[in-house]
């Protein structure tokens, strides 16, 4: 026992370095692709809305004609919720934003770095369904990141497509700006 302890004493730096390495590796594996729900300012459920028969594009209506899919305005929320469940707690919060004429400060779920160009328009218009990239949002209460949207993920999917429909993305300036 004493031999082991003294052995450990001789190698504290190596031991510490090994420990750090293990933590980094395990942390990297665990954090990758893990859905972590973020704190949102309003208790909003995607599941409830989609179950009620709503289409993604009703709220995210810019997706067919713009880079960004868009987050609906408070006015759009109020368009329905002036009459639908106006008494509930989260609707009271919504009412507060409406009266103060403030936008809801949603936390962004999927982020792309500054140097990446991505546009929803060509993807949605070529018939790609939202869940191909965003996962099954219809079963999520709160929207969560379902996949790590990195370059390899983009390239993998594009490589499987017919080149007449989707470019194979070997040209860097298609996505890098």
């Amino acid at each position: 026992m004493s031999r082991i302890v003294s052995g450990l004493r001789r190698q504290p730096v190596i031991l510490l370095a090994g420990l750090v390495l293990v933590v980094v590796l395990v942390g990297g594996v665990v954090s990758r692709g893990t859905a972590v729900a973020q704190d949102q300012p309003l208790d909003y459920s995607h599941q409830t809305h989609i179950a009620a028969g709503m289409d993604c594009l009703f709220c995210h209506s810019s997706a067919t004609r713009s880079q960004i899919a868009g987050v609906p305005s408070v006015q759009k929320c109020m368009g329905c919720h002036e009459t639908i469940t106006p008494e509930s707690e989260s609707m009271q919060t919504l009412q507060g934003y409406w009266e103060r004429q403030e936008p809801i400060p949603w936390e962004r779920v999927n982020k792309q770095p500054d140097f990446v160009y991505f546009s929803h328009q060509p993807h949605v218009n070529s018939g790609l369904a939202c869940e191909n990239c965003h996962g099954d949002v219809s079963s999520m209460d709160q929207a969560q990141k379902s996949v790590e949207m990195d370059m390899g993920w983009c390239l993998d999917c594009h490589a499987q497509q017919d080149e007449a429909i989707a470019p194979h993305l070997w040209d860097c300036v298609v996505c890098h700006q």
Partner: peptide, 28 residues
């Protein structure tokens, strides 16, 4: 357009962002 940070080389791109935008609009 990205704001380039320290240590990066940059140059005229023929406004590639405008080329990209027009091509996408035309395709749509």
């Amino acid at each position: 357009v990205t704001v380039r940070s320290r240590g990066i080389m940059e140059k005229c791109t023929f406004c590639v962002q405008r080329i990209r935008r027009v091509k996408e609009d035309a395709k749509a």
